[in-house]
Amino acid sequence: MNSILCPLLLIPLFVAPVRAQDSTAWLEKHATLVFHDAFDREEQGNLAKAIGNGWNSATADRVPEIKQADLDDGILKVASATKEAGHAAHIHHEAGFTDGGAVIRFRFPEMNRDEVLQLGFVDRATQGVHAGHLCYGLVRQGTVTLVDHKTGIMNLENRRRRDEALAKGGKIPADLEALLKTKSVTVPFKADTEWHELILLTVGDEMRLTLDGNLVATHRSAGFAHPMKRWFSFLIPHTVWIDDVRIWKIR
């Protein structure tokens, strides 16, 4: 096991070696590539479908005068108009699998506390879940998180109980707080402004996130096993650059 010193948090970060099924080589042998985009074109305006190739920006039409996605020399450069749109940039593409995931290359063009890359899966046809948010991986300046939203905080009953308690100035009910703690895992990670390859996979009730060939985080939760990941989705509140996306369905 490799040990990488994480000076930001002043604790060592132990990164497990990548498992075979978390590698691009394994995906190429055992999975089906259902989508690939190298972004080697120009965007067509600022609206929802401006990125092209099947991408849709759920927040672009809120602020049509602001360019939030710029295709530049094969790179998708996202600069979210979060304040103006009232929501982080939400960009998604059809996926359509039970088990599978995505391989992307990304970088943070600058470093501040607002830099977050959130990517994962959505099924708007799912009842009882806010906006169909299922599960995500989040890369922040100091941490990586895997979270099950379907059976966690995006579950409408869980949200109702939380919001009612907070509106009354109280605390989240103890049983709900205990439940939500089981729905995510967070590990330390030292982000930078270099390019990185990220693999995010769901296999059964397990989600795994690999960075540059190292398995960084893994977690098991019921929501990860949702039978239809209809959309692969980015949620970006500030700035992220992406230069390649491959979506894989595990056979």
Score class of each variant (00 low, 15 high):
F97V: 03
R113F: 09
A79P: 01
G137Q: 02
D73P: 03
N112P: 01
L76V: 12
G128L: 10
G132Q: 07
A88E: 10
R113T: 09
F97E: 07
H130D: 15
A88T: 08
L134P: 03
Y136P: 00
S80Q: 10
R140Q: 13
G137C: 08
K83M: 01
H87E: 13
I104T: 13
V103I: 14
A89E: 06
H92Y: 12
G86N: 07
R105W: 05
R107H: 12
H87D: 13
E94S: 15
N112Q: 09
R140P: 01
V103E: 13
T98S: 12
H92T: 11
R124C: 01
I104L: 14
G128F: 09
V139A: 03
H90E: 15
A89S: 12
G86V: 08
V103K: 02
I91L: 15
R124W: 01
G132P: 02
T82S: 15
A125L: 11
V103W: 01
H133Y: 01
G142N: 12
A81Y: 09
R140A: 13
V103T: 13
D114P: 01
D99N: 14
D123E: 05
A88K: 14
H87N: 13
R140M: 11
L119G: 11
V122E: 12
G137Y: 03
T143C: 05
L117V: 06
G101T: 05
D123F: 05
L117H: 06
L117Y: 06
H93W: 10
G132V: 04
A85T: 10
K77M: 11
E94V: 15
L134R: 05
A85L: 09
G101C: 06
H92N: 14
A79V: 15
H133E: 01
G86K: 04
G101V: 08
H87I: 07
L134T: 02
D123G: 00
V122P: 07
D73T: 11
H133C: 05
D99H: 08
A85H: 10
G132R: 06
R124G: 07
H87C: 10
A95Y: 05
L134H: 02
E94D: 12
L138K: 13
E94T: 14
F108D: 00
F121N: 00
